[in-house]
């Protein structure tokens, strides 16, 4: 009886896995199939037509590489400054007691909840009056501000996880506070820094809403905007789904790779506040 129900659960789990992975599979599968096959009434479920033609035609007008460059530039800036700012702030709130500390934490938590959808008009007005529309800097500023609260919260957990006693012991041995920190605590924080960097990467790489508002020019598009434009352009002459799926795959693959590398740390960072204690 117990055995039977266990087999039943395993079957159920496999069915769910298949349902959940199907869209991802379908994207890859369609990307490799020629248009003539995709236009047939009966879908082709078996994997991989094995043709790279969709990929080459999705990339051939050069707009893909321009968007890739834009995305890479923005992402690098966001990741660098988010890690730097969040690291300093996390240090402050987990190593010092100071007036306004609590207010700062509450503000950080609340800001993290603010929806981009409620701010984008103001951000548009601000950037247009600063002349920063369609620029890497303008959109990066907004992204950093949007991502820094969560990275502070994430890193705070990591900094608090390194006992201050370790630093104090090193200070007794004659190191300055700064030296003690750099020699003892900093190396132990590496996983936390990597995790928050990847979080920032994913946010900046995938962001759509703010980019749509702040980067209206075609030559300033990031990859998500490029993909949307690609779909729309294709729709004007009866969507070529093979090409569109190849384009989606190009946008998705780097993210999927990074995500798989770090997901364990990200989930634990996200829920540590809840599970702890």
């Amino acid at each position: 009886m117990k055995r039977k129900s266990r087999v039943g659960l395993s079957v159920l789990a496999i069915v769910i896995s298949l349902v959940w992975i199907f869209p991802v599979y379908w994207m890859l599968n369609s990307a490799f199939l020629p248009t003539t096959v995709l236009e047939r009434f009966t879908p082709t479920f078996l994997p991989f037509g094995g043709s790279w033609r969709n990929f080459t035609s999705a990339m051939d007008d050069g707009t893909f590489f321009r968007a890739l460059g834009m995305s890479v530039a923005i992402t690098l800036i966001v990741v660098f400054f988010c890690i730097l700012f969040a690291f300093l702030a996390a240090l402050a709130i987990s190593r010092f007691k100071f007036r306004g500390r609590k207010t700062f934490i509450v503000a950080v938590l609340l800001i993290q909840m603010l929806p981009a959808e409620a701010l984008f008009l103001a951000q548009y007005k601000m950037m247009s009056s600063l002349g920063l529309l369609n620029s890497v800097i303008g959109v990066s500023i907004i992204y950093i501000a949007a991502v820094v609260p969560f990275t502070i919260w994430m890193l705070r957990g990591f900094v608090a996880g390194v006992p201050a006693d370790l630093e104090e012991a090193a200070m007794v041995d004659g190191l300055s506070r700064f030296q003690a920190f750099m020699k003892i605590t900093f190396p132990l924080l590496a996983p936390g820094l990597v995790a928050s960097g990847v979080y920032a990467f994913l946010q900046a790489w995938n962001e759509f809403t703010v980019a749509l508002i702040l980067l209206p020019a075609e030559d300033a598009q990031t990859l998500p905007l490029w993909l949307r434009g690609f779909v729309q352009a294709s729709a004007t002459r009866a969507t070529d789904w093979g090409e569109v799926m190849a384009a989606s795959t190009l946008v998705a693959v780097p993210v999927i790779v990074f995500f798989l590398i770090v997901q364990g740390r990200m989930t634990s960072g996200l829920v540590s506040g809840a599970v702890k204690g």
Partner: peptide, 22 residues
């Protein structure tokens, strides 16, 4: 089950929306 969930989670929003419209 976990790998399948992870892949779905990792998809960028714009890419998954495109697949779903297909």
């Amino acid at each position: 089950l976990q790998i399948s969930m992870l892949l779905a989670w990792a998809m960028p929003i714009v890419a998954s929306m495109t697949v779903w419209t297909w």
